[in-house]
Design a binder for these strands. Structure first.
Lengths: 156, 156
DNA sequence: TGGTTAGTTGCAACAATTCTCAACAAATAA
DNA sequence: TTATTTGTTGAGAATTGTTGCAACTAACCA
C-alpha cells in the first residue's frame, strides 16, 4: 500500500477522474513491486487478486497514471518500458548495458544541463526520470568497439 | 548504399560475425530510408527485394547492428523504437511529448555532463544517442500537473 | 436513497515483437 | 574435397502491447 494513496486519490477526483478498484490495485502493485516494474509483472500480480482484470486495463492504467505524473516511465536497456512511483523529488539512473546494474543519481546533477536546454532551445526537459545507458567501472568496453569501427577515439 | 559499407563488413568479419545478404540488405535499407527508421519500414523495404526475408530477421539484425555500434536505437515519444546509422560524430534529440516534434542537438552539449558522470561515478555514458523528453516552446504544460499533485513547483 | 451521465472496464480482435527450433551456410579442420 | 563446427535464417508459435466498442459503475445531484 502506497504511503500517500489518499492524497493521490483526492487529486485524481479533483481532476475529474475516477478512483476505481482496478486503478488502486495497479498503483499498489507498482508500489509493492519496487523499482522498474514491467507491465507484465504488474499484470501477474493484480491478476492473482482480481482474475478478471485485463491486460488492456493494466497498460491503460499505467499510461494514465504516468500522464497524471503519479508514475514515471523508465526506458530499459533493451528498449522496453518499466514504471515506478514518482516522488516529489525526481531521481535518475545510470544503467550499465553490460551488467544491467543500476546506479541512482540525485536530480541535482542535471540542473545545469536542463538550464542550458531551456535557455538555448527553449525546451523544458521532463523532470520526472532519465535513464542514461553506458558502461560502469567493471564493464568499460564501449570505447574499444567504437575505435575499431571508426578508427579514432569516441568524442568526449 | 552505405558510403562505408566495405569498412563495416570488414569490421564485422574481423569480430567473428558473418556478412550475410540479409544483413547487407537491412543495413542498406536503413541508410536509404534516412533518420528514425522503424522496423516496419525496413521490413516493407527489404521484403520487396527479398520476399522470404522474415520479420524476425529484421528485428534480430537491427538489434545486432545496434550492439555492434553500426546503428543507434532512438526512443520515440510514443515509446516505440526507431533506428538510424551511427556516424562517428553522435547527435541527440529533444523530443516533445505533446507535439512529437524532434529537435536535434549537437554532441557538444553533453560534454560537461559526461565528464561529471565519469569523474563522480566512474560511469562511461554511451555516446551513441540520447533522446530527452519534455515539452517544446509551444507545449509548456508539464509544470502545472506537477504543481497540482505535489503542491509545489517542480525542482529545477 | 436512487437516477443520471461521463469516465472506465472487459472482451475480443488486432498489431508489434520475441522466441524456438530445425534447416542451412560459411568457416575451419581433417 | 569432405567432415565438423558454429553462426544465421525462416517459419510459425508465443508473448507483449493496442484499439474499438458495448456494458458497466463511480461521482454527483435531486
Amino acid at each position: 500500500m502506497c504511503h500517500n494513496t489518499t492524497e493521490i486519490n483526492r487529486q485524481l477526483r479533483k481532476r475529474g477522474y475516477r478512483v476505481t478498484p482496478q486503478r488502486q490495485l495497479i498503483l499498489d502493485a507498482v508500489c509493492q513491486l519496487g523499482k522498474h516494474v514491467t507491465p507484465e509483472a504488474v499484470y501477474d500480480h493484480v491478476h492473482r487478486i482480481a482474475p478478471t482484470l485485463s491486460r488492456a486495463t493494466v497498460y491503460r492504467v499505467l499510461h494514465f497514471l504516468t500522464e497524471q505524473r503519479i508514475l514515471t516511465m523508465v526506458h530499459m536497456a533493451d528498449g522496453r518500458l518499466a514504471f515506478e512511483l514518482a516522488g516529489p523529488e525526481p531521481h535518475h539512473h545510470l544503467v550499465c548495458r553490460s551488467c544491467d546494474n543500476l546506479l541512482e543519481l540525485p536530480h541535482s546533477v542535471l540542473r545545469s544541463f536542463r538550464r542550458a536546454m531551456k535557455s538555448q532551445y527553449d525546451f523544458e526537459i521532463d523532470v520526472s526520470h532519465f535513464s542514461f545507458f553506458g558502461h560502469c567501472t567493471d564493464c568499460h568496453d564501449s570505447a574499444d568497439a567504437w575505435r575499431q569501427l571508426w578508427g579514432h577515439t569516441p568524442p568526449v
